[in-house]
Design a binder for these strands. Structure first.
Lengths: 129, 129
DNA sequence: TTCCGTGGTCTACATTTGTAGACGGGCGGC
DNA sequence: GCCGCCCGTCTACAAATGTAGACCACGGAA
């Protein structure tokens, strides 16, 4: 169980995503990015940032008179949680086709494909035994 | 763009999931299942069912004096939409490891693994060219 | 020293979501 | 033919969410 229980809401995710993209950032940059990306007002971003820190997804590190915001967990961890939600919902039978869809759609690089293939082979071995 | 715009809320998903599991069902069965699975009252299920039909995820086919509820799109389609949301959020770099995680965690059957592997090989070919 | 821009905090408010009771009508049993 | 049960609809209402203004303090520019 991850320490963070409250998953981010969709709007919060968007801010989180910006944080992932920009890396640890000052409010001004996040606000600018959110304005550009979603047309949000500064206030909106501030609120979402507060809620994210409340929920523990974002950490506000005091720097001078203001904060540097950073995601508390790395992007891949956060996405993983999302993925878990997906699995939790998905019916067992539908899973295979779901993954196929994802692989097709996500246009992985050759290296990534190789890794994935290796993983699959390993799993197949396991099934053999 | 799928016809359905409003994605189901988490609670709605739970009902949808029950519908997928049970197949087209009468209210009584859904209510019973939801009671068992989530401890919900009949009213709650009814409301969620209404909202789902409003949003177009569920279709209420009149049968006698009541309805037979059925999901408007097959499970795999619905999950696919969820998966799309996931991809939309996920940063490109993180995708590979995300899929690995999913494959590992979802414990596919040998057949499913084979299919997935075939798909990956196909993609690799494509990268070659 | 004064003023302004930024950033943070408070407050606000409409909407959506989660959860559920009340009510009226029909059908199946007695 | 009357009764109760089950169903669908209406209504309710608290909490979460989306979106944002008001206000205040401080640090830097002038």
């Amino acid at each position: 169980m991850p320490p963070e229980k409250n998953t981010p809401t969709p709007a919060e995710w968007k801010v989180l995503k910006l944080l992932f993209d920009l890396g640890p950032s000052a409010a001004r940059d996040l606000i600018a990015a959110a304005e550009r990306a979603h047309g949000w007002s500064a206030s909106t971003v501030k609120t979402l940032l507060r809620r994210l820190t409340d929920k523990g997804h974002v950490e506000a590190q005091a720097v001078g008179s203001s904060y540097l915001y950073r995601a508390t967990r790395p992007a891949h961890r956060a996405f993983r949680d999302e993925a878990d939600r997906l699995l939790a919902n998905s019916a067992p039978g539908a899973l295979g086709s779901l993954l196929q869809y994802l692989v097709k759609k996500s246009r992985l690089s050759k290296d990534e494909l190789d890794e994935l293939r290796a993983l699959i082979d390993a799993q197949r071995e396991e099934r053999e035994r």
